[in-house]
Nucleic acid binder design. Structure first.
Length: 209
DNA sequence: GTTGAGCGTT
């Protein structure tokens, strides 16, 4: 039975979330359920996936009903070999709503609105500190190897390409692909400034020695 | 067919 995550989170009121890292990309909740359920009562299992490609990111969340069972599972399944890879089991640090989690359990949010003294000065101290954070999405690259793969292919392709005739066939195929991408990109974000630099392209006409 | 630091939903 794999009705996990089929209808969203069932109940995260009194449940302890565990984070499973270093799992195989093909590992599913069904594969982890019998493993974690053996050490305790598993309430729900969720494996986040990429919304663009839809591929799993390589980690899963297992929610236990009791903390003692979760702790045991961490101590037991942590470092276990699953699907040929060693998985890492530990308590979740953050929550689904970006909330803090203590010992795998979500900390209740503080009541807002009522009881808040608005008579206080509007000046805040943590504001400046938070501002120091980087505004850009400097997150870790999900797959740096994949990028390298693409780049490597391009590099090899360029180095290998030394003829003029066979390029036509490939150029045509690539042109169509680029057109499709250009159309998609035009809708998302259009940069007229960029297009207004045809000179650069001509200037960058570097001849291969 | 692949990859490998990290923190979450139809």
């Amino acid at each position: 039975m794999s009705h996990f995550g089929r209808s969203g989170p069932p109940d995260i009121a009194d449940t302890y979330s565990l984070l499973i890292l270093n799992i195989s990309f093909r590992t599913t909740a069904d594969d982890l359920f019998p493993l974690f359920d053996k050490y305790g009562k598993v309430v729900d299992i969720f494996i986040p996936k990429d919304r663009r490609t839809g591929d799993p990111r390589g980690f899963a969340f297992v929610r236990y009903k009791y903390a003692d069972e979760a702790q045991k599972a961490v101590d037991r399944l942590d470092g276990r070999e699953v699907d040929g890879r060693e998985i890492t089991v530990q308590f979740a640090k953050y929550g689904p709503n970006a909330e803090r989690i203590h010992k795998g359990r979500i900390i209740e949010k503080p009541p807002r609105g009522r009881g808040r003294s608005r008579s206080r000065s509007p000046r805040r101290s943590s504001r400046y500190h938070d501002d120091h954070q980087e505004h850009g999405y400097g997150r870790r690259s999900r797959s740096r190897s994949r990028d390298r793969h693409d780049r490597d292919r391009g590099y090899r392709y360029r180095s290998r390409s030394r003829s003029y005739t066979p390029d036509i066939d490939k150029t045509r195929g690539r042109a169509r692909y680029d057109e499709r991408w250009t159309r998609s990109r035009s809708i998302e974000s259009y940069s007229p400034r960029r297009s207004s630099s045809p000179r650069r392209g001509r200037n960058a006409y570097s001849r291969s020695p």
